[in-house]
């Protein structure tokens, strides 16, 4: 593992796993539009994961994208624990989509200026797609935050409950200083500040209260391969078809 591989792998794993979770809303969305929105966002995320795994395969001697996605063990994944959590109720999934996609949008925006040209060009592209994910989340968070007492209270509870997991997105890797020094990525602390700057005005418009994050212990571990019990069943299901016959051609 090196700095750039570690960075791309965690981003790709985040995208793949949140993409799978979002796709679990297909057919179950609370309205038809929401069903299609979560499904479309899922499809975008899988596209992002594919292109990031492709960079690892072509430039960094990793296995091909399918093998990276479907055949690794849970402890080899570098996604944050937040993305692996089950979809829960719609309030949890919407708040996750909001918190996670604002972090992603800012991450790709920062990386569009990366000294790694290939990553910078791809980030520029991906950023434009995530813009729509963020618009989707903002619209619904503001609408439901100002909706009924029940919708407001459920979003507030989901937000408060999710905060340790959301802060886990910004767990630093062993290569943090090197990434910053080489102008590859400005780092997780800088990202978290930008993220707070993005979500705070939307939460204010939604009438929701951001918990005091200085008192919250982030759910770290995912970036080191320490995962909750929810990741392995997800991987088993996701790779079920391929793993019945890994040599089959499609």
């Amino acid at each position: 593992m090196n700095a750039i591989k570690d960075l791309i792998l965690k981003m790709a794993d985040d995208a793949l796993i949140i993409g799978h979770r979002n796709s679990e809303w297909t057919g179950l969305g609370p309205t038809l539009e929401e069903d299609i929105s979560f499904s479309s966002i899922a499809q975008d995320k899988l596209g992002h994961a594919l292109q990031l795994y492709t960079i690892l395969h072509e430039d960094h001697e990793e296995q091909n994208p399918d093998l990276l996605a479907f055949t690794r063990k849970a402890e080899d994944f570098r996604c944050c624990q937040y993305v692996e959590m089950p979809i829960g109720a719609y309030d949890f999934s919407l708040i996750r989509q909001f918190l996670f996609d604002h972090a992603e949008y800012n991450r790709y925006q920062m990386l569009s200026n990366s000294s790694n040209n290939r990553l910078a060009a791809l980030s520029q592209k991906i950023k434009g797609e995530i813009k729509y994910h963020v618009l989707h989340a903002d619209t619904w968070v503001i609408q439901l935050g100002n909706g009924t007492t029940e919708s407001h209270d459920r979003l507030q509870k989901a937000l408060t409950d999710s905060m340790p997991l959301a802060l886990g997105i910004f767990e630093k890797s062993a290569f943090e200083a090197e990434l910053i020094r080489n102008n590859i990525f400005e780092g997780e602390d800088a990202l978290r500040e930008r993220w707070l700057g993005s979500i705070t005005p939307i939460l204010q418009k939604a009438g929701l209260e951001l918990p005091d994050i200085s008192t919250i212990e982030p759910a770290y571990g995912g970036r080191k391969g320490q995962h909750t019990g929810h990741l392995k069943p997800l991987l088993d299901e996701m790779g079920e078809v391929l793993n019945t016959d890994p040599t089959a051609s499609w």
Partner: peptide, 13 residues
């Protein structure tokens, strides 16, 4: 605008 996501990734409704 009804929804920014449509029948394909590139379409809104």
């Amino acid at each position: 605008l009804n929804t920014p996501f449509g029948p394909t990734l590139c379409r809104s409704i």
